[in-house]
């Protein structure tokens, strides 16, 4: 009798324990292209140069110049994140399935013609999508946009590295200064510790960080893009953007918010 009790209790605990393991995730088809980021604490540190109009964080003036720094320890549960940015092909599937039409159509999928993407760009990240468009896609896919903390954890792992692949900048490991986007996954050597690709470069990525300061709406975009405007320091910084850097993006009309250099990837909570 005692043995039976022990067995029953053991079975019960085993059920409890194993029922929280990833093996029991209800995988959507799209979850196949996701990678798992383990739970844990890490130091979320962002540090970026001063520029008129960027506020909210602590302004520092030290040997490195005038810059903002924001640092906090965050604890994240384990989550899944898209291995690559969402592609044109994937977005078309969403569009065809749902007939999605944003309220303001201007510049929506500007690079598409006749409701479809250029053939050669099937596997390129989708661009010319606003954060609302991205959210609509994510909802359809049973996912959501990553928070900044999730995005950065996926990029830098536990060791706080500067670039997804390590601490040494390497222009051969991301699409950071070119004329156009490239197919997602073009830089396998640029993978992050968890196997995420193209977190640096190719396209900026929307994060789930829309907020207001009472006077404007804005969000933080991460990762930098292929585009690098040159000729003036007053341009929004392009080219290589390290893991700990962020760009404040003042939101206005969707037509202006959509851009040839901003795409997104999604995350999924592990149930």
């Amino acid at each position: 009798m005692y043995n039976l009790h022990v067995k029953l209790i053991s079975i019960f605990f085993c059920y409890i324990i194993f029922s929280t393991q990833p093996t029991s995730v209800k995988c959507q088809p799209s979850a196949k292209n996701m990678v798992k980021v383990p739970a844990g604490k890490y130091n979320f540190l962002v540090d970026y140069r001063w520029r008129e109009g960027l506020t909210l964080d602590s302004l520092l003036i030290d040997d490195a110049g005038v810059h903002y720094r924001h640092s906090k320890t965050v604890t994240l549960p384990s989550f899944l994140i898209d291995k690559t940015e969402v592609t044109n092909e994937q977005f078309k599937q969403f569009s065809d399935d749902t007939g999605y039409k944003p309220k303001s159509l201007k510049n929506f999928l500007k690079h598409w013609k006749n409701a479809t993407y250029p053939k050669a760009k099937a596997n390129h990240p989708v661009v010319w999508v606003s954060i609302d468009d991205a959210n609509a896609y994510a909802k359809w896919a049973g996912k959501r946009l990553p928070t900044e903390e999730e995005w950065q954890k996926a990029a830098q792992g536990d060791d706080g590295r500067d670039w997804p692949w390590g601490n040494i900048y390497d222009q051969g490991k991301a699409n950071m200064d070119s004329r156009d986007t490239k197919p997602v996954g073009s830089y396998p050597k640029g993978a992050s510790p968890y196997g995420c690709l193209d977190l640096t470069g190719n396209v900026w990525e929307w994060t789930n960080s829309v907020q207001t300061d009472g006077y404007h709406n804005f969000c933080w975009i991460r990762g930098g893009s292929y585009y690098f405007a040159k000729g003036s320091r007053w341009y929004m910084q392009g080219g290589p953007i390290a893991n700990y850097q962020r760009a404040k993006f003042w939101l206005m009309t969707p037509a202006l918010n959509r851009s040839a250099s901003i795409g997104f990837r999604c995350v999924k909570d592990i149930e």
Binding site: E52, K106, W204, M236, G238, W250, T253, I262
Partner: peptide, 22 residues
């Protein structure tokens, strides 16, 4: 335009077109 300009290849003149109502 400033500070947004430079995110992509829309210059100051292009950006007017994308304001509400163009």
């Amino acid at each position: 335009d400033y500070q947004r300009m430079g995110i992509d290849d829309r210059d100051q003149f292009d950006m007017y077109e994308d304001l509400p109502g163009g």
